[in-house]
């Protein structure tokens, strides 16, 4: 009996230690530099039952289209996917039709411009990375499709960054063409503060403060990075429930079969 207890304790210790390693290994890369950690927000899409706040994401799309899209591409996202944010087919068609897409070659071998359709991807503001860099002080603005997955901190980081423009502390020299940002690694960011209060007028009448726009566009970009998130989580709940019940049954059968051995 005592032996059994000891065994259990070692097992638990081992399990904890293993989990600890995995956890620490995951954390280790985050301890980079002296940049403060962006404050954690309570996102609609975090947690096991999280879903995207449709209204916020739709406002975020408006921020992207009216502000970010001037410099940043969103090259992995198709218009048709916007149905995932609650847009109706007609609305998606209308949104897509607002952009010009180069298509072709046609039967005469010519490239031609046409209106966008839901099957098109979001158009990129520059023809290529070189052109993007040339128009932006030599630094091409990164694509935003996976931005939330490609930065430590995810949406919190994006939200922090958009709110993190402030005057450089005394003695900190911000080089020409750069801006000071509290949450950007090294603090010098090539992007000038993109948002200002009332920079856009929200279609739903929400007041467009910097904080509001930062939250909305972060939500939208979280969706753009993980459009499968809602389906994944709802399937995950069902899978876990099934496995819990099934494993419980297996345990009962195991007990029954082993009954005569002990």
């Amino acid at each position: 009996m005592r032996n059994n207890m000891k065994n259990r304790m070692t097992s638990t210790a081992v399990a904890l230690a293993l989990f600890g390693t995995v956890f620490l290994a995951g954390q280790s890369a985050q301890a980079a530099g002296n940049t403060p950690k962006p404050p954690a927000q309570s996102w609609s899409f975090s947690g096991m039952f999280g879903t995207f706040d449709r209204a916020a994401a739709q406002r975020g799309l408006q921020v992207y289209r009216e502000v970010c899209a001037a410099c940043h591409s969103l090259r992995l996202v198709h218009f048709r996917q916007l149905s995932g944010l609650g847009y109706k087919e007609a609305q998606i068609k209308a949104l897509a039709a607002e952009v010009e897409v180069t298509d072709g070659p046609n039967d005469e071998g010519e490239m031609f411009d046409r209106k966008g359709t839901p099957a098109d991807k979001f158009p990129s503001p520059f023809a290529n990375a070189k052109a993007a860099a040339a128009s932006n002080n030599g630094k091409a603005p990164p694509d935003l499709s996976l931005m939330v997955k490609a930065r430590i901190g995810g949406a919190d980081y994006l939200h922090g960054l958009l709110n993190g423009y402030e005057a450089a502390p005394a003695g900190f020299k911000v080089p020409e063409g750069g801006a000071y940002n509290k949450y950007f690694p090294g603090h010098v960011i090539a992007m000038a503060a993109p948002l200002s209060d009332d920079a856009i007028e929200y279609q739903d009448g929400t007041k467009a403060t910097v904080a509001q726009m930062a939250t909305d566009v972060s939500t939208f970009l979280a969706w753009a990075a993980e459009p499968e998130l809602e389906e994944r989580k709802s399937m995950g709940i069902k899978v876990l429930l099934f496995l819990l019940i099934f494993t419980g049954l297996l345990f009962a059968v195991k007990r029954k079969i082993w009954e005569d051995v002990h």
């Binding site: 989580k233 399937m235 709940i237 496995l243 819990l244 494993t247 059968v253 195991k254």
Partner: peptide, 19 residues
């Protein structure tokens, strides 16, 4: 049956990360 039970427990752990 013992391996199957272990598999079930392991899949719960696995599925948590996947989903």
């Amino acid at each position: 049956i013992k391996d199957l039970f272990g598999l079930g427990a392991f899949l719960i752990f696995f599925a948590y990360f996947v989903f």
